[in-house]
């Protein structure tokens, strides 16, 4: 390798380093200027909680339906949904509905029990709408005497 080429390469490398340093210094200057300006305009800029975050968060629409599910309660969007939401999620969450899979007779018994002991109001003609919604969308599943193991997440067992 010729000495001249080597010194040329060294010079190019030095130039690259210098220009990098220039960029870093310029960036640091711009950043500190921005901090100064921010502090002059709003003295608590870096110490205050960003209260505007509240307004930027996704709002909860009480009636929003996504992929056939009522987002606020997790209930299936079907005939009778809002009657169920308005009558059955005041004291307990909708999770108590979706966990339970019962026949119309047993839902009617459960409603009667809630009216007699848990301060549930008279449902009138809404009762049929509610029970129909529940038995249609959350029907009992046959489980037999013992189910097979399902929903297994397989993983390699390390020593």
């Amino acid at each position: 390798m010729e000495p001249t080429t080597q010194s040329n390469e060294e010079e190019r490398a030095r130039n690259r380093i210098y220009s990098l340093i220039n960029v870093v210094v310029a960036l640091a200057f711009i950043l500190s200027a921005a901090v100064l300006i921010a502090l002059i305009l709003r003295p608590g800029f870096f110490t205050e909680q960003p209260s505007s975050a509240i307004a930027e968060t996704e709002p909860i629409d009480r009636d929003l339906i996504e992929n056939g599910i009522h987002v606020r309660t997790g209930l299936i969007d079907a005939e009778g949904l809002m009657t169920v939401v308005n009558n059955c999620t005041n004291c307990h969450s909708a999770k108590l509905l979706t966990q339970n899979r019962m026949s119309a007779d047993r839902w009617n018994e459960t409603i009667l029990w809630m009216q007699q002991t848990q301060n549930l109001w008279e449902l009138g003609s809404n009762q049929e709408v509610i029970v129909n919604y529940l038995v249609t969308n959350y029907p009992p599943k046959k489980k037999g005497r013992r189910m097979i193991l399902s929903d297994i997440e397989w993983y390699e067992l390390e020593d």
Partner: peptide, 18 residues
């Protein structure tokens, strides 16, 4: 006070109340 509350949608429930 809710700063920037005027930008908040009417049916939005603030995080502190959820």
């Amino acid at each position: 006070d809710i700063v920037f509350g005027e930008h908040m949608s009417a049916d939005y429930l603030p995080l502190g109340l959820q």
